[in-house]
């Protein structure tokens, strides 16, 4: 017994060093897997409020770009207005759907909330945004986040007034997407090299792909609505060892300038997940 105490006393510093390392690494691995860490909600309230202060300055310098992307989005939405379309041919009749929008609320699947980006990093291997909207404002984990131009990421952590988003520029982020032209589905991930490009895997080799083709979210990604732009094809990488192509996409969102985003809530997600879980259980 005495020897044990002597041992501990003699190597106290080394043991203490090991203990701190284990503590730090357990924080790290736990966070990488579950995105939880001790004091995280308190810490994100504090860092969030510091981030907000910094953002009041940064926001000013990015106003021009934020404006541009919002105007572009407005133009895109205006083009969808029914009044813009009129056939010259009178034999063709335009049928107008007469369901009132109010009565559709029950059927609304995706619900949007706007949020401001107050903290962002694009320089590391796992890039996160901080949004100034949290649990008190109805945000929850696993909601999708899209920007004016396209997909941004997924909510991984919420505190009462702030939330953190794992952006598409994160090694762990995956989203199901499809080619707009052919409808072939693949998975989007990031290789950690350039913040302007993301990778799309598992596209069969027989699909014809042109540079500049749009890639949009598919119906399978339950947290994002379908047909949200992810990016455009930049280069096609042919891997001879597999039957699939890897596409290098230029991401639609410019992650270093995005200032306003929308948090998308899938109101039927829980029902869908429950059904899938039940199916898995019966098949086991």
């Amino acid at each position: 017994m005495r020897n044990i105490f002597l041992f501990i006393r003699r190597y106290f510093n080394f043991l203490f060093f090991l203990a701190l390392q284990v503590l730090a690494l357990s924080f790290l691995f736990r966070y990488n897997r579950y995105h939880e860490a001790a004091f995280m909600s308190v810490a994100s309230e504090i860092t969030g409020s510091v981030n907000t202060r910094y953002n009041t300055v940064e926001y000013y310098f990015k106003l021009k770009k934020a404006n541009e992307s919002l105007v572009q989005e407005n133009v895109h939405l205006r083009e969808l207005l029914r009044s813009n379309y009129q056939g010259a041919d009178t034999t063709r009749q335009l049928v107008v759907d007469s369901i009132r929008v109010d009565s559709l609320v029950l059927d609304q699947k995706y619900f949007y909330r706007d949020a401001k980006v107050v903290g962002s990093f694009v320089t590391t291997q796992t890039n996160f945004f901080t949004l100034h909207r949290g649990l008190n404002q109805g945000v929850n984990v696993d909601m999708g986040v899209i920007g004016p131009r396209g997909v941004v990421g997924r909510i991984v952590n919420v505190s009462s007034n702030f939330s953190t988003v794992m952006t598409m520029l994160s090694r762990q982020f995956k989203v199901d997407a499809k080619l707009k032209t052919s409808g072939d589905r693949g998975t989007i991930s990031w290789d950690g090299i350039s913040p302007q490009f993301v990778q799309m895997r598992n596209i069969p080799k027989n699909v014809k792909i042109n540079k500049g083709d749009s890639v949009i979210t598919s119906e399978l990604s339950s947290i994002f609505p379908a047909n949200i732009l992810v990016g455009t094809v930049d280069t096609v990488v042919n891997d001879p060892s597999t039957n699939f192509l890897t596409l290098r996409l230029r991401s639609a969102t410019n992650f270093s300038t995005v200032q306003h985003v929308y948090i998308v809530q899938n109101k039927q997600l829980e029902e869908q997940r429950m059904l899938e879980a039940n199916t898995r259980k019966t098949n086991e």
Partner: peptide, 29 residues
């Protein structure tokens, strides 16, 4: 001992800003 405690707290506070809990703390310790 104190050096390591200070380094741990210091690294962890940076980690909370960069959302990498433990990464910089481990290196600092």
């Amino acid at each position: 001992t104190w050096l390591m405690i200070v380094a741990f707290v210091y690294g962890l506070s940076l980690d909370y800003f960069l959302l990498t809990p433990g990464l910089h703390a481990a290196a600092c310790v």
